[in-house]
Structure formats: structure tokens, C-alpha cells
Write a protein that binds this DNA or RNA. Sequence first.
DNA 1: TTAAATATGGACCGAATGGTCCAATATAGA
DNA 2: TCTATATTGGACCATTCGGTCCATATTTAA
Lengths: 217, 217
Amino acid sequence: MAQNEPALLNIDIWTDWSYIEVMASGRPQEFDSNKVIWAAMDTFWSNGFDGTSMQQLLKSTGLSKSSLYQTFGGKQELFIRCLEEYTLAMKEKLLTQLSLSKSGIGFIREVLLSAAEEAKASSIPKGCLIMNTATEFAQSNAAVSRAVNKGIEAFRTVFLTALKKARSAKEIDADADLDQLSSYVVSSMSGIKSMVKGGVDEKAVRSIVDIVMRSLS
Amino acid sequence: MAQNEPALLNIDIWTDWSYIEVMASGRPQEFDSNKVIWAAMDTFWSNGFDGTSMQQLLKSTGLSKSSLYQTFGGKQELFIRCLEEYTLAMKEKLLTQLSLSKSGIGFIREVLLSAAEEAKASSIPKGCLIMNTATEFAQSNAAVSRAVNKGIEAFRTVFLTALKKARSAKEIDADADLDQLSSYVVSSMSGIKSMVKGGVDEKAVRSIVDIVMRSLS
DNA sequence: TTAAATATGGACCGAATGGTCCAATATAGA
DNA sequence: TCTATATTGGACCATTCGGTCCATATTTAA
């Protein structure tokens, strides 16, 4: 892929009727749209967009080809739905985790260290779907770029919230520019994850996290 | 792609005879192997491994299919040659740049800021071939991982040299752990480049660079 | 001039690609 | 029960994929 996008409207409202709850009669859907999206997301997450074939997608979702095309429109449309769902779910999960954590700084450290866990694990590191996609597509496809941007902004928002919490608790400098710092944390997160994908070991990852954390406070 | 590697020795000495200078008679090669590698590298760099087709490769290199297969073995072998050449060339270029620069810290800042240039440019950002590949393949292919690791180590070496120079010039703390810092710089570089690919604007990139630089001294 | 060695272009390969289409099936409401 | 509406599985599509192979062209050394 990584070519220019086709010259058509990419508003999947027109092809994906799952937004509308029942409305008309007929045979009901036999699958859970959300589970399908998560299954597809996991496949894209591990293999990238180009690296994922329709066959893999059909296998992991359990759908038939026509169901997938009818419901989601196509590979790219499904992919973008996955990016959106990923963004939404991650943001929610992280904000919950943040609200449960005592310290804003501690929360950020936890999140960064979760990358180190991937380095320790024997399985192949998946990284972050949003940043993987940024790397794969760069700015070659407008619809994808839009979804990636929203993802990055979501992460930035989460970290900004954490930094504000940290400032309130006087964990960080009172007059630090939190907007800039939040971008820095996203960037650092992305860098660390790519190092893990590159094979850097857990110890090295932890020392990078330490340096990042030191630069916050 | 992104599957497991085939169970065969990947020592391209056996398939690529361009190492041997002439030795036997016969029709001489009509193309410059190095130029071919650079043309292929540029294509892989822009589109990734999966995103690059043989057709594109033949077009960008100007080779015929048989010449390419005869000379390099195949798509993956050529790709790995590109990774190696990229590593070598980048290391050399950066070390030269470093030796010409007055300050180790200044050099690192220059390199990080070069990512900001990509954000400013209207063309699609290519990022770093090594980190792009790390992201695309993760640890799914041993031969590729080996090449990626060598690349990361090369970058680390460059930055380590710069940091030592900075320490000699008392630009940074005398008892900083330069090994750790060099990994941190590579990670930061990678993070910044992925932010650029994700569409973050130049100003934001520059502020991230500032924070990274501040954490060094 | 001849033989050996190499380069080259293109035909050809099977498999897989993303995508379309339709007949059969199943369900809900009238 | 009948009809309208959806879902579903699979046949089918042209195209492209990476890769092999061979006949031909070209060059060097003997």
C-alpha cells in the first residue's frame, strides 16, 4: 500500500450500517461487530496493514468475505475502524488507570515501563498500533493520517492530564510547559517501543525510561 | 511478509559474486552494484519492505529481473544489503559531521533537528530506514533483526562518541553514564522521527528536541 | 576463431492478492 | 404464510505477487 488514497468519500456511515440499531427487519447479524473489530485490530497490530492479508483477516475475525465487505466496506475501511477503536479504548483504559493511580508521574512511569515488559516477554513485540501505522504510512494516505493524528492527540491528552495531576501534587516544576512535555512523553513512548521492536533488551529500556522520567521532574 | 524466515543460510557471499573483482572472464556487469543498492534502498526507505514490489524495484534500479536475482539473490537479500549499506553510509556520514563540528552536544542537536526539517518539508517523511524496519519486522525475521541491531549499535556508537567529546569539553556532567545516554539519544531520535511521520508540526518537533537536549546537560 | 563465462530480456509459473457478485438461507413484521 | 430485508458462503474475477528458467547476447581468455 502506502499509495495515494482513492478519490472518494471515506465516510463509512454509507457502507457500515451497524450504526443503526435495528430499524428494518431481516436476518440479524450473527457476529458481534465489536469483537470482529478487535480481532482484526490484533491482526493489523501484529502484522501492519500491508502485512495483513484478507485471508488472515477472514480467519481471525471468523467472517465470510461478503460479510466483511458488506459490513465494513473493505480492508482499508476496516483498518481505519480499528485505528479509531484502538484510540478510543486506549484512551479510556489509560484515563482509568490514571484516575486509580496516586501520582501523575508514577502513572507515566508505569506506562513507559510497560514497554519494557514487552522487551522481557519472549513473544514478538507489537508496539503501538498508532505509531506503527504512522511509521508504515507516514503521510501517504489522508484518511489514515487523520486517524493517526487523532490517536496521537488522544495520547497527548492523557499525558497532559497526568502532568497536570503531577503539577498539582508538586511533583514537577510549577512553570513547566505541560503541552510541550506531553508531546515529549508521546515521542519518548514511541521511541522506546521502536527500540524494543529493534531488539534492545529490558535493562537498556529501563535505563531509557529513567532518563525520560528524570527529565520531567 | 513479517513471517518467520526460511530455514536456510543467509550468507549472501554465496549468491552475490560482486565481491570478487573480475577473476573469471565473461561479459562484464553493465550496472554499478552500489548505485543499484542505493536506488533500491531509497525505494524500500519510502515504502517499507512489504510496501515495495519487485516491479518498483526493477524500475528504480533499472535492472532486469534476472540480473537482480542473479546478483542479489532475491528481494529479502537485496533488502538486507540495503540495510547494511545504509548503516555503513550513515555511520560514516555522521562521524564525519561530528569530526567537523566543534561541539558534541551541538552535533547531537543538529542531528535531532534534521528530523524537524522533514516535518517542514512538503514531501512525505521517510524517517530512518533502520527504525522503520524495526517497526515493520519487530523480531519476526532473524536475518533482518540482525541487520537492524547492527544499525542501532552503529547509531549508538556515533552518539557515544559525540557524548564523549561533549564530556571532554565539559558540556555535560562528568559522571553521566554515557552508554545509557547514547541509547536514550537513539530512542529519542526514533521517537521524534515517528512523530514527524505521524504529522506533528515543526514547532512541536523543535520543542521536543529542546527537552531532549536539556536532559543531556 | 573458438570456447567458456557471464549478462540480459522476457516468457512463464503457481499462488495469493483485494474485490465483486449471486444464489441460497434465514429472519422479522404484516 | 408471505414478503421484504439481511446475512452468508463460495464461485469467480483480473491483477499482482515473488520467483524460476531458458534462449540469446556479449565479452574475455585461450
